[in-house]
Design a protein around this nucleic acid. Structure first.
Lengths: 162, 162
DNA sequence: TGTCAACTATTGCCTGAGCAACGAATTTGT
DNA sequence: ACAAATTCGTTGCTCAGGCAATAGTTGACA
């Protein structure tokens, strides 16, 4: 295709027309931008940082509003060590409690407390508003559905192949 | 579908069927998962971490293979302070150099050096392979294009509204 | 049954990034 | 032309998160 024989000035510019990589760059930038805006909105409202919301929201959706540490770490896509300390902070704030498993004494659960549910109730509208500003104006419900499925498909192959 | 009329146990579960938020969760998880895989692949190949690649690749695509610090920070969606130190590390590794502007002595450029181009050449195939594993199997070129445009649209409104 | 392998969560250490304060340079307004 | 306000980049402080090592449990297999 390209003439690599000529002058070397342009070098590898031709290899850059990769639609997949372009898409990935767009995903990264958008993710960072939206995350930044979410964080900003939460700070402005004097609410805890975004990871706290992720924890609370994930637990709220779980059966009995509790999750094993390992499951929670996987859901949030962070390391187990990182999660331990993140949960520690939420416990210290009185939002969560650590409960234990009768049948397997290795596992511990992060369990949502009423105070956590209440805080979640305060954070949710802020997050929802920011997401609406970013998404609703640009995506129909059907498009959002399609986008979600696409991303989940990608994630599936990104996890399974390991 | 679900019977929300009964006991109040389920509480706010019904408000969770928000396609936009579902899509956002999928984006976050996928981004984290793919980023993790990229990082893993680079580490396995004994190459520098992902942010180094982002810097090198971004500069390589810039005119004259250099960018003002502010522009670079915006392209990578990180803070200026963070970028200063990131660039410091790349300079210490001999991949970049700091050059200055004649007409405006406040600005400094991050300028790609030959060693940086060479390293980029080593990192690119690794990154490309991982992205191919995640994307190519799941997305046609046309879908990738559409995905990119969608994300850029979202990012546009996420930045402009501030 | 006893030992070894696999798994769960936590801890210490270290690195990377954001925020706010700062110094330097430029632009604006008068 | 001078002063104030803005812009650009760097630095110190702080903290969140990953990795590797550890302790405590469970399961498997001889």
């Amino acid at each position: 295709m390209a003439e690599t024989t000529a002058i070397a000035e342009v070098s590898l510019a031709d290899t850059d027309v990769d639609p997949h990589r372009e898409a990935w760059i767009a995903i990264s930038q958008t993710h960072a931008a939206v995350t930044g805006r979410l964080q900003e909105a939460l700070t402005a409202a004097e609410l805890p940082p975004l990871p706290w919301f992720e924890v609370l929201a994930t637990l709220d959706r779980a059966p009995e509003q509790r999750l094993k540490m390992g499951e929670l770490a996987e859901a949030l896509v962070i390391s187990r060590g990182g999660l331990t300390k993140l949960v520690d902070r939420l416990i210290k704030a009185g939002l969560l409690e650590r409960t234990f498993c009768e049948t397997d004494r290795r596992v511990s659960y992060a369990t949502l407390l009423p105070a956590g549910i209440e805080l979640l109730g305060e954070m949710r509208p802020v997050v929802r508003a920011e997401l609406a500003a970013a998404f609703t104006a640009n995506l129909s419900v059907a498009e959002a559905e399609g986008l979600r499925k696409t991303m989940e498909r990608i994630r599936g192959s990104a996890c399974g192949t390991s």
